[in-house]
């Protein structure tokens, strides 16, 4: 490197290092390492709890408010398909309207104006049913 390139290299790293450090710090303190995410999740459930199911992979709570039903899913471990689509089960017990998508560990809340009888989780790429749960 000649003098100009050396100077450019130095300034790039003098700017990049603190800028990245600040962003990494902000994103790291935003991560939830120690608090119980289950407690956090439960605090987020809105309305009256109608149904509640729990297994090793997930906890599902169906709640309702004066305006809508809410399907609350707390995913404890990753699903087989990283991006999975959640469908409402219709009156015939089949795949109905799309409620939303599950991506990774975390809590999800899907609203619906009608009563939710259950839900189906689909791997859309392989067109495979991953999970079917009826209340």
């Amino acid at each position: 490197m000649d003098y100009r390139l050396r100077t450019r290299h130095k300034w790039m790293w003098m700017i990049l290092t603190p800028t990245l450090a600040i962003f990494l710090f902000l994103s790291a303190i935003n991560l939830d390492f120690f608090s119980s995410s289950e407690n956090l999740y439960m605090a987020e459930v809105k309305g009256n709890v109608v149904e509640e199911i729990e297994n090793a992979e997930m906890k599902v709570v169906l709640s309702n408010t004066s305006e809508q039903y809410l399907l609350n899913i707390w995913l404890k471990s990753p699903l087989r398909a990283t991006s999975s689509v959640v469908y409402e089960i219709n009156g015939k017990g089949e795949k109905g309207e799309v409620l939303g998508q599950l991506q990774g560990i975390g809590s999800y809340s899907f609203p619906s104006t009608g009563i939710i009888r259950g839900f189906i989780v689909m791997d859309e790429i392989k067109n495979q049913q991953i999970l079917k749960l009826e209340f």
Partner: peptide, 14 residues
């Protein structure tokens, strides 16, 4: 890329 990892993968699976 560093931010892609910190704001993406790490936020989803800490």
């Amino acid at each position: 890329i560093t931010l892609h990892v910190f704001l993406g993968a790490f936020q989803q699976e800490t």
